[in-house]
Design a protein around this nucleic acid. Structure first.
Lengths: 128, 128
DNA sequence: TGGACCGCTTGCTTTTCGCAAGTAAACTGT
DNA sequence: ACAGTTTACTTGCGAAAAGCAAGCGGTCCA
């Protein structure tokens, strides 16, 4: 569970945290789709609940999201992005653009177009 | 080896290809450090040779790099990025910036600064 | 011609993933 | 107020992937 530092390279260090099959998909839903609860996040392409639980804990440990009790429903623990988490929005949008151009995933093409045309505005639209 | 399509989301599709511990580290060395041979790429933070071989094959299948015999040394099979691969440079630079700001990886801080100041120029500097 | 080098592959152990089932606490309807 | 449902998990186990060490064929170099 501890972040084993692979090297001094910031790309490798970032990937120690984000470089797996699910973490950035979860963050996509938190940062771009603004999903806030465990059960909303469980939908993503069928992630198993134990994996989702593990990834959320890692993201909390890394200071990318926080979790707080929902005042409206004591069963829920809301997931909220931190400033550090919000700085991942550009990466997610770049991935969206690259994926739209070069993979079979073609959902939300207008978002890709927006990112291509005015990246800064697109990024700002996902900030609080 | 086949690209199992997880969903119509371009982010998920991109991560089907790139979302693991090594692929983007290999691409960092191909795209940013301009490494071209298997043995140069084997250095990255100690990737095992069977894993490197597998990742290079996947990247070739995905059209992100090509491999050609080295005219100067018949043992070598040079790794070259395609246009599709070069479009990953922005993502790698964003990861570098985020990693520099938020992880323990602090190598090449002047690159992060350049990306923050003039992203387009930094990207262009890694194109052929 | 012998030895080193390059790009792998093979076999085996260890770690991680992923599914199914189960559980405690909190909410909801009657 | 009690029964049933929902939420957010945890546990156990089999499957898949990662990682390590060794080996192997082709190529280069002295």
């Amino acid at each position: 569970m501890s972040t084993t530092l692979r090297s001094a390279c910031p790309i490798a260090s970032a990937l120690d945290l984000l470089g797996d099959r699910w973490t950035l998909v979860v963050l996509r839903d938190v940062l771009l789709a603004r999903k806030r609860s465990f059960s909303e996040l469980a939908a993503p392409e069928g992630i198993a609940s134990n994996i989702l639980s593990d990834r959320l804990n890692r993201l909390v440990d890394a200071g990318i999201v926080t979790r707080e009790p929902d005042p409206d429903d004591g069963r829920r623990r809301i997931v909220l992005p931190t400033a550090r988490g919000l700085e991942l929005v550009p990466i997610l949008l770049d991935l969206h653009l690259w994926g739209t151009r070069h993979t079979a995933g073609t959902a939300k093409p207008q978002l890709a177009e927006w990112v291509a045309r005015d990246r800064e505005a697109a990024i700002a639209s996902f900030l609080p």
